[in-house]
């Protein structure tokens, strides 16, 4: 093989790629943050005895988890403007679709967390005079927090990788920057290797934290 690896390309395009990684992180943080907010309510709705709340949250979760993020993005970027009659810029459209997407996955994490708490916890609370809502708020949810930290970390990693999809609507996150550099330098092997490693640099520490949290939880139980 006569291929000559060029460090030069990587060095020169690095600031550009780094800026892309910055946007990737920003998008992911906002989306997962919003996702946690949405997911907490929807997750509680998924264990609700209220049929209406349960059905509504189930429809949301199943719709989002059953369709590709790309399609959800197109719905917000192309579909919704057609309906509303005015355009939605790429950044809000990306944030909207990623947050709503993340919300559904977080909801399932929250639901599983709540259901992993022993039934006796709720019953002991009820027998001492707490209402369902009080028991949820003071007994069940606080215990859930600890347990959902590892799966939330995994959700963050998944969203970080999936955020590359928004490159299709010209948002200059890491993958989009990769395209740009490739177009300029024609050094695709170097570019995509660099992009891959930048993703790895972002996901690896989080994966380690998740592992650490999981071990700590096992010890405490």
């Amino acid at each position: 093989m006569g291929y000559k690896w060029s460090w030069n390309v990587i060095v020169r395009s690095f600031p550009l790629l780094l800026a892309g990684a910055g946007l990737t992180i920003r998008l992911t943080c906002i989306a997962v943050g919003m996702g946690i907010l949405i997911g907490t309510f929807v997750g509680i709705g998924r264990v609700s005895k209220n049929k209406f709340i349960f059905t509504l949250s189930s429809i949301y979760v199943n719709f989002i988890r059953g369709t590709p993020l790309l399609v959800q993005l197109y719905l917000f970027y192309f579909g919704l403007p057609a309906l509303l009659g005015f355009p939605i810029p790429p950044f809000p459209a990306a944030i909207l679709s990623m947050s709503i997407n993340s919300g559904a996955y977080v909801a399932e994490i929250v639901r599983a967390g709540i259901q992993s708490i022993d039934q006796g916890q709720m019953e002991a609370a009820r027998s001492l005079g707490m209402t369902y809502h009080q028991a949820m708020k003071y007994v069940i949810i606080p215990q859930t927090f600890k347990r959902i930290i590892p799966p939330l970390g995994n959700e963050f990693i998944a969203m970080l990788k999936d955020s590359s999809i928004v490159s299709v609507i010209a948002l200059e996150e890491l993958v989009r920057k990769g395209y740009l550099v490739m177009g300029r330098t024609f050094r695709s092997f170097e570019v995509w290797t660099a992009v891959a490693f930048l993703f790895l640099f972002m996901t690896f520490p989080i994966a380690q934290l998740v592992n650490f949290a999981e071990r700590r939880l096992k010890q405490n139980d």
Binding site: D118, Q121, E123, A124, A125, R126, S127, L128, M130, Q143
Partner: peptide, 20 residues
């Protein structure tokens, strides 16, 4: 009558203390 209004105390096999 809801549990909360029955004025009962319960003890379970697995204690069901609130760990937090």
């Amino acid at each position: 009558l809801p549990t909360a209004q029955r004025n009962i105390g319960i003890v379970f096999q697995n204690y069901a203390l609130w760990p937090h």
